[in-house]
Design a binder for these strands. Structure first.
Lengths: 154, 154
DNA sequence: AACTGATCCTTATTTTCTAAGGCAAATCTG
DNA sequence: CAGATTTGCCTTAGAAAATAAGGATCAGTT
């Protein structure tokens, strides 16, 4: 059920780079018939290797020019801080990722906003408004050296 | 050329969530004919709003169970450190993202590896092997609270 | 008032997907 | 070890979707 061979990996790799490739062309590149590739892909989806497909949008083109990372420290004396913080983060559209980390702080938040003005608003009205947030450290991204690389499949 | 109306945003939003939706169904959801939606989409791609499509793979299913963030400080006395670091990062498959940030350190690296053993190897053989790397701070992710949320388009 | 460009439509052709059925090799089982 | 089952692949045919062509309408412009 969780077996995955070299052909499967190749399918995943190609699909990760071009999620809209026609099954016919994918089959050509793999060296199998379209039907076989289709069956493999169906299995890969059923078994949870492929979670979905999405268009990759250009954030700058959409007016989201500023990428920031925020380290968040919570006040552990407040009850339910973690649950409440996690829930609030889900509903904030600016937050693209949020991870609980081991180390000097509690959460690492990745967010995209239009500019510094928008960020100040987001920080004040969303992040700092949450109860239990003790401290935040903001790191504004000056240059995106590597962005959303594909997972190493092969 | 860079105009984008409400319909365009809806197209982008739907496509971001389901990049493989049939144009026919997309058109139904939008309320236009398939041809019109196709033309809009073509324009959105030509103008750089859509950069591509990709399958969303499950990293855990692929044996990449550990997500880490690494803060990297460079030794600015070494020449070309920034260029060399940036280039090395591109070729490392473990590195999913790398950003130059303003603040207490120089680069923030997001990487996925199988486990702590693999991470130690990556840290020693890839990151610390680079000339000019003065200090690194590793933050292992314990829980992924929010993962790869769609960009706020609407 | 005529032109231009943008946006949308319908229609017809080509391409792709999908489901059905079959073959052969590998694997399981008594 | 022989028979049965499963697995993975194939071809084929009908259904669905993408694409290209041609035309109508409307807003802004000369």
């Amino acid at each position: 059920m969780a077996e995955i061979d070299k052909i499967d990996r190749k399918i995943l790799s190609i699909l990760q780079g071009d999620g809209r490739i026609a099954n016919v062309e994918l089959a050509e590149r793999i060296g199998l018939s379209p039907t076989s590739v289709g069956e493999r892909l169906k299995r890969l989806q059923r078994d949870g290797f492929v979670e979905g497909y999405g268009a990759r949008l250009n954030p700058h083109r959409l007016g989201l020019g500023l990428l920031v990372f925020v380290e968040v420290l919570l006040d552990k004396t407040t009850p339910d801080v973690f649950e409440r913080f996690a829930k609030a983060v889900q509903t904030a559209p600016e937050v693209l990722e949020c991870h609980m980390v081991a180390g000097g702080f509690d959460y690492l938040v990745k967010a995209r906003v239009a500019n510094m003005t928008a960020y100040r608003r987001f920080l004040g009205e969303t992040l700092l408004a949450l109860p239990g947030v003790r401290e935040t450290r903001t790191y504004a991204v000056m240059e995106e050296v590597k962005r959303d690389a594909p997972l190493p499949v092969g």
